[in-house]
Simulated scan of single mutants.
Amino acid sequence: MTSAAPAPLDPAAGPVELTRQLCNIPSVSGDERAIADAVEAMLAAHAPHLTVMRDGDTIIARTELGRDRRVAIAGHLDTVPINENLPVQDRIDPETGAAMLWGRGTVDMKAGVAVQLVLAVELVAPTVDLTWVWYDHEEVASELSGLGRAMRQHPELFEADFAILGEPSNGTIEGGCNGTLRARIELHGTRAHSARSWMGRNAIHRAGELLERLAAFEPERVAVDGLEYREGLNAVRIEGGVAGNVIPDRCSFEVNYRFAPSRSTDEAEAFVRAFFADADVVEIVDLSPGARPGLEAPLAQRFVAAVGQTPTAKLGWTDVSRFSALGIPAVNFGPGNALLAHADDESVPVDQITAGAEALRAWLSGAI
């Protein structure tokens, strides 16, 4: 038995109510078909000024006004798994008294998507041409990303002068992002009976020496184009041991290096290999570049003026990196506190949703 199709999305209800509608369509990574169908149907019904195409469960909608500049604005449709936190509820923040929408996806990132959808329908004559993108599979392995897939298959649709990703940023602009590297570090030893441990060489003890060095390491704070990025190098997983009476001959652990966008991926890899030079194996298992702040372009400076707050650095990795790799300056801008993303008490202030819509509207319509 298949579930009933969700009710049609209503952009006229405004970004707050549309956030509720979007969140109440379950869309855990890998199950984005229903929400992608709903977004596509909404655009077909309400946005005849847009040229719409679909790649899997990624929707791309473009204006073709002949403007001399183009802005790409993107958001992902999927969420992490639901944990008894849908449907959305109205709540009041006990500390601030602010009205909140509570539930899975409110922060990451259906509020940002709602703002984008409302403006995609409303702005029939923006001052720049617009490419709107709503994509699948953001919350899982990078190689599954709908945005990455669409960029590979339709590169001509992603030509732009500036890009905005609706990741939660507490309603401020967060420039660029850190790069991220994961590596598997392996130490070898010699097995022996634990009653005669001197006959062997303990790989776990060898790993302990490297982990002590890692725990003592103080990562840098790096200024890039006026914003400060904090780096990090941390162990995130460890494996080892044979049996309760055997000296282990192998131990491995995984590290995650978050590096400033001023460093290339080659530099990040060289640093990690040098740091663990006395390991037997250093295997890079994942590596994505960072993105510089993207705030020097005139379009970006006008956007900063529209938001009216001082930009900060994005300390995690986001898909702005994909735009940056194409030579497109990109920033993060969306409602919600990123510290609540994926949390069971995920919730977004209503006033951040409306303020974000107002700032984007003013900038894209030329009011600022």
Rank of each mutant, 00 (worst) to 15 (best):
M1S: 15
A7V: 12
L9W: 04
T19R: 04
L22T: 04
C23K: 08
S29I: 04
A34M: 10
A41Y: 04
L43T: 07
A44I: 09
H46L: 03
D55A: 14
R62K: 13
E64F: 04
G66D: 08
A74Y: 04
G75E: 10
G75C: 11
H76K: 11
H76G: 12
T79S: 14
V80I: 15
I82M: 13
N83W: 12
L86Y: 04
L86K: 08
L86G: 01
I92V: 15
P94Q: 05
T96Q: 04
G103D: 02
R104S: 08
G105F: 07
G112E: 12
V113Y: 04
L117P: 02
V118E: 01
V124Q: 15
T127P: 00
L130A: 02
T131L: 10
V133Y: 06
W134Q: 12
D136K: 12
S145Y: 03
L147Q: 09
R152F: 00
Q153N: 15
A160I: 02
A163Q: 06
L165G: 00
G175V: 11
C177F: 03
C177I: 08
H188F: 13
G189N: 08
T190S: 05
A192D: 03
R196Y: 14
I204N: 02
I204Y: 01
R206P: 02
A207C: 14
L211K: 07
A215N: 11
A215T: 09
A216V: 00
R221P: 00
D225N: 13
Y229K: 06
E231G: 03
N234M: 08
A235S: 13
V236P: 06
I238V: 14
N256H: 01
R258A: 12
A260K: 09
P261H: 11
S264E: 05
F276D: 00
S288T: 13
P289L: 03
A291R: 05
P293L: 10
P298N: 10
A300D: 12
F303I: 10
G308M: 12
T312F: 07
K314D: 01
L315Q: 15
T318Y: 04
D319W: 07
R322S: 13
F323L: 01
A325K: 06
I328F: 05
F333T: 05
A343K: 15
D345C: 05
D351E: 14
Q352G: 07
T354D: 09
A359F: 01
L360H: 01
W363A: 14
L364C: 00
A367I: 02
I368K: 02
